[in-house]
Every structure is written in structure tokens, then in C-alpha cells.
Design a protein around this nucleic acid. Structure first.
Lengths: 168, 168
DNA sequence: CTGTTTGTTCGGTCCAGTCCGAACAAACGA
DNA sequence: TCGTTTGTTCGGACTGGACCGAACAAACAG
């Protein structure tokens, strides 16, 4: 446990990342492991992450797999070197948020929209109250789909610029 | 349990809302209760929601309180009538998403940014590797704060227009 | 005042997710 | 070849959240 001599500021930020992880549906351990990698100067192996975080080897193994799948960290398979796999953090937070956004929100919107359209098609009585509600839902979700489609193509700076340009 | 004679399309959409609720960090019961209220022609009381959803009275009570606090449904305290409180669904999905967005994402970004700034101030060695990482984090989060601040003022149509205007 | 209807609160159960340790597999160095 | 290091997988303990039923509080009808 080498947390004692670590800079306090870094520890505070890592704790904050732990909390953020929970908000985005990940575990606290995922937030800490990402944080340690974010501050690391070099890629770290699983035993090194065990040393740094205090988590069990199995936990680190599972969490790194999840984070790699999502794209939050990168798995560097260094064939030649002594240690076999090493992980580094994706530094561009914006990329991460875009990925999360696409994988959770956009996907969710699309599947919901598909369900709504299917339900609308099999309405026994299209002019009923249910029909009206479903049509309104569809209109909203079509807007949402378009918004997310456009937003995922932009960088943070572009998105900010687009909004600022519209405001005035 | 009067689900048997309900239109199938409506049931499909409600199931979809149950799933959406989970994505946004709410319980499945919250999704169903909102869905029933969304399709209801008139506001419903707690016993009626119990009848429609099959959930226990206590569950309906707790969930309606949560949904009311978030703004997903509205509590109509009808003093004069026989039944005391009645709930109706907020029909504008965009309002709901904005609320969720503000309460979860924006708040999360702001607290994180505050933590980062505090950590940056108490850096013992500002020119270190940690200092550089923390400064980059701060820059990203300031962008994010600005984006969310601008986005929460816009309607769905405006947001879509802003993005479409920027694209071409 | 008493019984009934509505809503809240409280304790408890159940389940899913997190994390751990141990067993196992694979690759390397001696 | 054999021991050591690294990583994965498996079963289980623990925890938090969702949901339930029962007890309780409040308002109304008779």
C-alpha cells in the first residue's frame, strides 16, 4: 500500500474519478484503476495495478477487461518484454464520454425508437388515445435520434462552438 | 391484474420505458409507473396505480415520491374530491431528459471540476507530471461545463437546429 | 365516535453486483 | 525440464437496492 507518500492532490482527483465511475454505471474500482493509469507515466501491468490500488488480482483482471472493452484504457500486448500485458489510460476524456454516450444513450434511443415504431404498426385502433400517445413518443424520439447522430460526430470544441454560435 | 385486455402495443412501449428507466439510473417500477401514467387519460391515485401495475402500495408510494421529486410526474393534490392525491405524467419527454441531465450529468461535472481546481491549488509541485495531468483534466471539464450550461437552455428543436446549422 | 379509505413509514427478504481468495492455465527463465 | 511470474476463471462472502407486507397516521363518511 504505497498511498501514503502519494501526492494528496492526485489522491483527491482519483477519489473524484471513483465517484464519477459510479455515476456512469461503472464500479468504484473501475474509477480508481482508471485514475491510477491516468496519472501513471508508463503503462502498468496487473501486478503493478494490484500494488497501486490494493485490489485483488482477480478484481484488477476483470475490471481491466471491462475498461478495455469500453475503450477507457488500452491494452498494450508487449510480446517481447518481461511483463506480458500492460495498460495505459485513454487521455482524451472527450473520446471516453463519446463512447459512453454512443454505447448507452444512443443505443438506448435507437432500440426504443424501433420498439415504438413496431408498436405503432400493430396498433389495432390507430385513432385511439394510445395511438396518439405513441405517435407523440415517436416524434420525440426521432428528434433525439437526430440530435445524438449529429452530436457524436463533433469534438468537444466543435460542439461548444456550435452551441455558442447558436446562442447569439 | 387487468393487463390481459390492454392493447399489446401499449404494453410493449411500457416495457421499453421500464428498460429506459434502468439506463437512466431508475428502477424498473419507476419506468412502468411512468408508462401507465403516460397512457392514462386522467390522473391516477395510488390505489389505481396499484391496480394497474401490480406493485405493492408501499412501492407505488415510494416510487411516486421519487418521480415527483425529479419532475417526471406531477402530483395533483385534489383537496375536494374523494381521492386525495392523483398523479399525471409529464408528457414532454424533452423536459424529463433535461432534468435528468441537469441533476446527474451537469451536477457531476461541476462537483468534479470543483475538486480538480482545489487539487490543483494545493499541488506541492505544480510543474510535475501530476500537475500537467490535472491541468489537462481541468481544461476538459471546463469545456464540458460550458457545453452543458449552454445545452440545458435549449429545447430539443433548438438543439437540433444548432447542430444542423453547424454541420453545413 | 367509529369504521373505511388513502397514503406513509418501517422492518425484512431477495437478488444483482462487487470484490476476494484459490485453483487453474500459460509463458518465460534457470 | 521445473519453478516462477503473470493472467484468467470459478465459487463464495458481503453489500446495497428493489420490492413487499404490516403497522401506523390522517382524513373523510356514516
Amino acid at each position: 500500500m504505497s498511498e501514503g507518500n502519494r501526492p494528496l492532490a492526485r489522491e483527491r482527483v482519483i477519489e473524484s474519478l471513483e465517484q464519477s465511475a459510479e455515476v456512469y454505471g461503472l464500479s468504484r474500482s473501475a474509477g480508481r484503476i482508471y485514475g491510477v493509469l491516468y496519472f501513471a507515466t508508463d503503462p502498468l501491468s496487473i501486478p503493478e495495478l494490484v500494488e497501486e490500488t490494493g485490489y485483488a488480482k482477480s478484481t484488477v483482471s476483470n475490471v481491466t477487461r471491462t475498461l478495455t472493452r469500453i475503450g477507457l484504457i488500452h491494452r498494450r500486448s508487449s510480446e517481447g518484454g518481461g511483463r506480458r500485458v500492460r495498460f495505459s489510460a485513454e487521455q482524451e476524456i472527450w473520446f471516453i464520454l463519446q463512447d459512453v454516450f454512443q454505447q448507452y444513450i444512443q443505443r438506448e434511443i435507437q432500440t426504443t425508437l424501433r420498439t415504438i415504431k413496431r408498436a405503432e404498426a400493430q396498433l389495432s385502433e390507430p385513432e385511439s388515445h394510445e395511438g396518439e400517445r405513441i405517435r407523440e413518443l415517436r416524434a420525440t424520439y426521432e428528434d433525439l435520434e437526430e440530435i445524438t447522430r449529429l452530436a457524436t460526430d463533433l469534438s468537444a470544441a466543435e460542439l461548444r462552438a456550435a452551441l455558442e454560435a447558436y446562442e447569439r
